[in-house]
């Protein structure tokens, strides 16, 4: 790993992103807008006294899930463009290490993901009065980490795609099972054994659990920190795996 090459890559990817207002809008505006839809969807619900609003339970989780999906898509397509434009092959004839390239990408998109988390969390708290027991900074931490997870999985998925069309096909394969099994629709402990076992292997489950912990507890719990570590480990493993799939020498 070489910090100079990694930073050069980060600067370059951010410069590319800056040239692309649509992607910026997709990153910064779309998750917040989806959150607004979600809020108004449950605007008229009648609650038992003392029960939390759906928005406080599920909207909180959406703070992590929308960015996860958006970053997965943007990263996998961007990385694929690098492959199809021939720039990847060219880069692999230069001294840059494969990990410098992927971590450079990951840092650039993580910066974007952090801005994204700040925007949508601010909207959730100030516009829609999100109320959870734990600290908003922990919510932001988990939201950022989950979108970085989207970045890492997107980079990994792009290794197995040859066209942009194939990259998009990974959405239903990689993203949707995680959505179904993460504990959003059905609590994980009430799933049958097989589904629960699969759910335990999927990183998004741990993001959701971390957010549920933040929602219920004033102070960060050890379960929450454990979840955060697991998701971070998935991120690092995803990036390392993705860099192993880059082949300098091809047939």
């Amino acid at each position: 790993m070489n910090p100079r090459m990694m930073m050069a890559t980060t600067v370059r990817v951010l410069a590319q992103l800056r040239q692309d207002p649509r992607s910026i809008a997709l990153i910064l505006v779309v998750p917040a807008a989806l959150l607004a839809f979600f809020y108004y969807l449950f605007d008229n619900e009648t609650l038992r006294p003392g029960a939390p609003r759906t928005f406080d339970r599920v909207g909180l989780i959406m703070l992590a899930i929308f960015p996860f999906i958006v970053m997965f898509l943007i990263t996998s397509i961007t990385m694929l463009r690098e492959r199809t434009s021939g720039t990847l092959e060219r880069l692999l004839t230069t001294p840059i290490h494969k990990a410098d390239l992927l971590f450079g990408y990951a840092i650039a998109f993580s910066i974007a993901a952090t801005l994204q988390a700040l925007v949508s969390t601010a909207v959730a708290y100030w516009a829609f009065g999100l109320s959870v027991a734990g600290s908003p900074w922990l919510v932001i931490l988990v939201a950022v980490l989950t979108s970085v997870l989207g970045v890492a999985l997107g980079l990994l998925a792009s290794a197995f795609a040859h066209t942009e069309f194939q990259a998009v096909q990974f959405m239903p394969v990689v993203v949707i099972p995680q959505l179904l099994l993460c504990g959003l629709f059905v609590a994980r402990d009430s799933m049958n054994g097989v589904l629960q076992a699969i759910s335990n292997l999927l990183p998004l489950s741990y993001s959701v659990e971390a957010l549920q912990q933040i929602a219920e507890n004033m102070d960060p719990t050890s379960t929450m920190w454990g979840d955060v570590l697991i998701v971070a480990a998935f991120v690092v493993c995803g990036l390392i795996l993705a860099s192993l799939t880059l082949r300098r020498r091809t047939a």
Partner: peptide, 29 residues
């Protein structure tokens, strides 16, 4: 990889970057 340069047949540069940004990136590497 430090001493051998390779220019592919299809020009492999970043279309969405300026000339300067492209050259500076490879310079930085």
């Amino acid at each position: 990889r430090e001493t051998v340069g390779y220019v592919t047949q299809a020009a492999s540069v970043y279309k969405d970057l300026t000339v300067e940004e492209n050259v500076r990136y490879f310079a930085a590497i």
